[in-house]
Structure formats: C-alpha cells, structure tokens
Simulated scan of single mutants.
Amino acid sequence: MATQALTDRYAANLYGVLSCYDRIIITGTLPGACYAGGMTSFLYAKGIRIFDYARFAEPLRERIRQRAQDVCAAAGVEIEHVSKRH
C-alpha cells in the first residue's frame, strides 16, 4: 500500500495547511468503539475477550512506539515525554 500524505488524503476536508509545523494533533472518534459496549462488540467479533485487550494491544503499542523512535532517530529528533501530572 502506497503512503499518502494526510493533506492529500483529506484535501476535501481541509481549509488550509500550515507549513513548517513541528507537531500535529489528530482528534476524532471511532463510532463503533467509542463506548464500552461498542468496543466489547468489536473485540468479540475479532475473537478477543475484553479481559484480554491489554495483551492484544501490547504488540500494536510496541510497534507504534518503535516506529516513532526509528523515525525520530533518523531525523535526529529527541523524543520528550511530557507528564500531565501536577
């Protein structure tokens, strides 16, 4: 599957584009999984018990984390973890 820029993929929904931005926050909802019953149904359809969710999600989380580290290392960018705790 070819990689497509977000600005190309969602061009019809964008009203402008900032250049030289250093971060982006994407928000939205997943209608089928944004409430407990929906997420339970989704996991059940995939053959995953709700109590096994953490084990199911761990390899995905690690793949995302590793990819982010690889991209940052290639770009010479340091990852800074920011805590919301006060």
Rank of each mutant, 00 (worst) to 15 (best):
P31F: 02
Y35N: 15
A12I: 00
G32M: 05
T40H: 10
R9T: 02
A45Y: 03
Y15E: 15
D22N: 13
R55G: 03
R65A: 12
E78P: 10
Y15W: 07
S41F: 04
T27K: 09
E58P: 02
T40Y: 05
L30Y: 07
A75C: 07
E78N: 12
G28P: 01
V71R: 12
Q69H: 09
C20H: 13
S41P: 04
A68K: 07
Y21A: 11
P59N: 00
S41K: 14
G76F: 01
N13K: 11
T29S: 13
M39C: 08
I79M: 13
L6N: 03
V82I: 15
H86V: 11
G38A: 03
A2D: 14
I79S: 08
G37T: 02
L14E: 01
Y53M: 07
G47D: 00
R23W: 11
G16C: 01
A45S: 15
R85M: 08
Y10P: 00
N13T: 06
C72R: 08
E78F: 04
Y53S: 07
D52V: 00
L30I: 15
T27E: 10
D70Q: 15
G47C: 00
V77T: 14
Y35V: 08
P59I: 00
L30C: 11
A2E: 12
S83N: 03
I79K: 13
I79Y: 04
I79G: 06
E58T: 08
G47F: 00
I26F: 06
I79R: 15
I26R: 06
H86N: 11
S83L: 03
C72H: 09
E62Q: 13
Y53F: 14
A2L: 06
G28K: 01
L30G: 12
G76M: 01
I50E: 09
I50D: 07
G76C: 01
S41C: 05
I64Q: 11
E80L: 13
Q69A: 08
A73K: 11
Y15H: 14
F42C: 06
Y21P: 06
S83P: 01
E80A: 13
G37N: 12
E80Q: 13
D22A: 07
Q66L: 08
G16H: 02
A68N: 13
I25Y: 09
E58Y: 06
T27W: 04
Y44H: 14
R67V: 02
L18C: 09
A2I: 05
A57C: 06
R9S: 03
A2R: 12
L6C: 02
R85E: 13
A36N: 10
Y53D: 02
M39K: 08
Y21F: 11
K46R: 09
H81N: 15
R67H: 09
L30M: 13
M39N: 08
A75N: 08
I26A: 09
I24W: 06
